[in-house]
Design a binder for these strands. Structure first.
Lengths: 226, 226
DNA sequence: CGCTTTTTTGACACATTTCAACACTCGTGG
DNA sequence: CCACGAGTGTTGAAATGTGTCAAAAAAGCG
């Protein structure tokens, strides 16, 4: 891990993101003041479950996997954060201890917002508090969605649902590129990699073609009722 | 469903709860001003997924089940809220639409806090915002725990974990009464009722006895490594 | 091109759901 | 007091879905 200054491009990206865009410019600048960035190699750990964390993280580039460890060493993914997303904010309000492990799933650059400062700002400034509330809501809903899908859908259905979530409304045929390795997708969907593979080949008979990371859908309807 | 005024006992219970206790008395009173209660029979629906909700709910007595529906009509429990807990707060920040269905799992009385008013207060008052942030964090963590357990533990392990979460630290043998029907517990743990039943009989060989709703644990150690 | 890493496939084991039948509990009314 | 019935919980057998392990195939990268 190396630490860097924020580039002016980084600042621009940050200020444009959903979290900062809703804040008055001066407030956003105040949060960013003193913020640094750090780079990490794939597989690096950013923080560990139950250990202290002093930052809230913003993904500038790369990918982060948030997961819990079982007693037997197995890993359960809680969420995956691509470029532009914020994570680790909940530790701020849980005595600065992480609820999960965070690992770079690709070469990674993150901005590190000082969590004590941010917490303090949130306590004084309703704009910041509001932004945090919306972030927490959003993350909470993501987790709920995940839990519900795990409990209601089979593996192929979860994969179909994931694919459909990338389909612009109204199109009945389209294609897109997976934003990360199948490995990671499997984890995010709560599947073993083999199960993901098999799910894709089930979906072939519903008009889904997979070539490398490129997914092609011929008939959206067929997927929807899978 | 019948609507009622809050009794003075209700007010006391509310003001003592985690959410309100952290607020200055005047602020808490301001929120409660105009708040009404409603009673519901078992199986009544309080709100439905994707439909508008105008309240945040506080359970005065009884039990609420929060769940999502699958296309095939199957239900997946997201959370269960006993007396003293608040739910439905996330809809406030998601265009006042529920992310799940809420159903009385027992005869129920809830206090109905007006969500628009509460949202407004949160936007002006950092104390209220802070209280909401902590609530959202807490609920988020609950859901995360649930997701992780689903993905890491088998049915008997989840049941063991549930039992242990009711064991006061330091005791190696104890007993307690299930706070709700086994049916509901099964749902909360993401199991079919039959699976819960079988899990209990597996645990018998680790010193767990079940008589009606009373659970008795002879050897905590044995449970922990199940 | 050759090497490493990732993905796919197959065979098998295991956990859980499903469906059906049975036991138990508890309150009601004969 | 017992009999009845509805609701609740348990048990068994079969079916299903997913994980695991090993091996082959494909993709990425120098």
């Amino acid at each position: 891990m190396k630490t860097l200054r924020l580039t002016s491009n980084d600042r621009a990206v940050l200020l444009d993101s959903r979290f900062f865009a809703r804040l008055p410019r001066a407030t956003a600048e105040a949060i960013l003041d003193g913020t640094i960035a750090s780079t990490h190699e794939e597989h690096d750990i950013l923080f560990r479950q139950d250990e202290p964390v002093d930052h809230v993280f913003f993904v500038l580039s790369g990918l982060v996997r948030l997961y819990r460890l079982g007693k037997d060493g197995r890993e359960a993914d809680i969420a995956v954060f691509p470029k532009g997303e914020i994570f680790g904010e909940n530790a701020m309000f849980l005595e600065h201890r992480a609820t999960a492990n965070a690992q770079a799933a690709e070469p990674l650059i993150v901005a590190r917002l000082e969590s004590r400062k941010l917490r303090q700002l949130a306590a004084e400034n309703t704009d910041v508090a509001q932004a945090l509330i919306e972030l927490l809501c959003h993350h909470g809903k993501m987790t709920e969605d995940c839990l519900a899908e795990d409990r209601l859908l089979t593996a192929p259905q979860r994969v179909a649902s994931y694919i459909l979530s990338h389909c612009p409304d109204g199109l009945s045929s389209f294609s897109f590129r997976l934003p990360f390795q199948k490995n990671v997708l499997a984890g995010k969907l709560g599947l073993a990699p083999e199960a993901l593979s098999r799910a894709f080949s089930m979906l072939r008979q519903s008009g889904v073609t997979v070539k490398g990371r490129v997914i092609e859908i011929r008939d959206r309807q067929a997927l929807e009722k899978f």
